[in-house]
Amino acid sequence: MAPRPSAPAPRLEHHSLERYEAIWFGIATLMAVLLFVAAIASFISGTYTAIEGTGGGHHITGVESGRLDPRNLAATPFAEPGLRENPDGTLEAFVVARAFAFQPATLRVPAGRPVTIHLTSADVMHGYQVTGTNINATAIPGQVTSFTTTFRRPGTLSLVCNEYCGTGHHNMVNTIVVEAPGTQNQTE
């Protein structure tokens, strides 16, 4: 494929190529670093619910270093899944995922108050995704996943299992009801 003699186009040569390379290398590295800075800023300011270390600051009976025995949930608060209010006014919710439903099937939480959700699985892995939010956590048998979040607006949200867990996986859908402040005490 010889160049057309009538149209001598300038072709790239070694030196200008090297210069452009160096500039592009700089831009690429800068973009990577900026991206990291942005993600860390988001982590620190809490715009997403990062999974916290063992228990999310709460001690859980029967749970050691974030681990428990899935055959013996009875020894832990997961025996009675649901929301509870601690004497200091903090809220904790215990959720068990098992094929193919979450317990409780409907979790009721008050709007506008931080809730620490503790999640585990009784059998295989499951996912915990609340539609319309960025809450997305893995339920693992033998492990407790904890995170703290605040549901701002009252309403009903879908809780979807997003980790393959067997034949009924696509039917593993439950709900979270976010109640306007002041109404939640009547429902329990």
């Binding site: 390379e21 592009w24 290398f25 831009i27 690429a28 590295t29 973009m31 990577a32 670093v33 991206l35 990291f36 993600a39 860390i40 982590f43 990062a50 999974i51 916290e52 270390g53 063992t54 270093s65 974030g66 681990r67 996912g127 997305n136 956590a137 893995t138 693992i140 492990q143 407790v144 996943t145 904890s146």
Partner: peptide, 28 residues
């Protein structure tokens, strides 16, 4: 594994940084 428990966030963030860096050779 951002959604997984019992892995310190420090290490998740370090791996995130290295992941961004490895975009550089692809951009090159």
């Amino acid at each position: 594994q951002y959604a997984d428990p019992n892995i310190p966030n420090l290490w998740k963030n370090i791996h995130m940084f290295l992941t961004f860096l490895i975009a550089v050779p692809s951009l090159l």
